Computed example of a mutant assay.
Amino acid sequence: MSNKEPAKVPLLHKGRGATSNISGRFEGLSFTRESDGWQTEPDIPERLTTSAIEEKSKTITATNQSPDIPFSQSINPYRGCEHGCVYCYARPAHAYMDLSPGLDFETKIFFKPNAAALLEQALRKKNYHCSPIALGTNTDPYQPLEREKRITQTLLQVMQEFRQPVTIVTKSQLVLRDLPLLTEMAQDNLAQIAISVTTLDNTLKRKLEPRTAGPSARLRTIEQLSSAGIPTAVLAAPMIPALNDSELESILTASRESGAERAAYILLRLPHEVAPLFREWLEVHYPEKAKHVMSLVQQSRGGKDYQSDFSHRRTGTGVFAQLLQQRFKVAVKRLGLDHRRLSLDCSQFMPPPLPNEQQDLFS
Rank of each mutant, 00 (worst) to 15 (best):
P10M: 01
P10T: 05
L11E: 14
L12A: 10
H13K: 03
H13C: 09
G15L: 13
R16A: 08
A18M: 10
T19G: 08
T19K: 03
S23I: 10
G24M: 09
S30P: 04
R33L: 14
S35Y: 13
D36C: 14
G37W: 06
Q39G: 06
E41P: 01
P45H: 08
E46S: 13
E46I: 12
T49Y: 14
T49G: 15
I53R: 09
E54M: 14
E55P: 00
K56R: 14
S57K: 12
S57C: 13
I60F: 06
N64H: 09
N64K: 01
P70L: 07
P70A: 13
F71D: 00
I75K: 02
P77G: 01
G80K: 08
C81W: 05
E82Q: 13
H83L: 13
G84N: 04
C85Q: 01
V86G: 00
Y87H: 10
A90Q: 02
A90L: 01
A93P: 00
H94S: 14
A95I: 08
L99W: 09
L99E: 13
G102N: 05
D104K: 03
D104G: 06
E106R: 04
K108A: 02
F111D: 06
F111N: 10
L118R: 04
E120V: 01
E120Q: 12
Q121Y: 06
R124H: 05
R124N: 12
Y128N: 05
H129M: 07
H129G: 03
A134M: 15
G136H: 02
Y142C: 07
Q143L: 07
E146A: 02
R147T: 14
K149A: 07
T154G: 02
L155V: 08
M159I: 09
M159D: 05
V166I: 13
T167L: 11
T170G: 04
L174C: 02
D178P: 08
L179E: 10
L179C: 10
P180G: 12
L182V: 10
L182T: 10
T183K: 15
E184H: 12
E184G: 03
Q187G: 15
L190V: 08
A191Q: 05
I193C: 10
I193M: 05
I195S: 00
D201Y: 02
T203N: 15
L204Y: 11
R206Q: 15
E209S: 03
P210F: 09
L219D: 01
Q224W: 07
L225W: 00
L225S: 05
A228F: 10
G229F: 11
A233K: 02
A236F: 14
P238V: 08
M239Y: 01
I240G: 04
L252H: 04
R256C: 02
E257A: 13
E261N: 06
E261I: 05
R262H: 00
A263L: 00
L267C: 05
R269H: 01
A275G: 02
V284E: 07
V284K: 02
V284Q: 07
A290H: 00
K291Y: 09
V297T: 04
Q298H: 11
Q299E: 14
S300Q: 03
G303K: 09
G303F: 09
T315V: 14
G316A: 08
F320V: 11
L323Q: 12
L323M: 12
Q326C: 07
Q326G: 11
Q326I: 06
K329R: 14
K329C: 10
A331Q: 03
R334N: 12
L337C: 06
S343Q: 10
C346F: 05
S347C: 04
F349T: 04
N356H: 15
Q359A: 15
L361T: 11
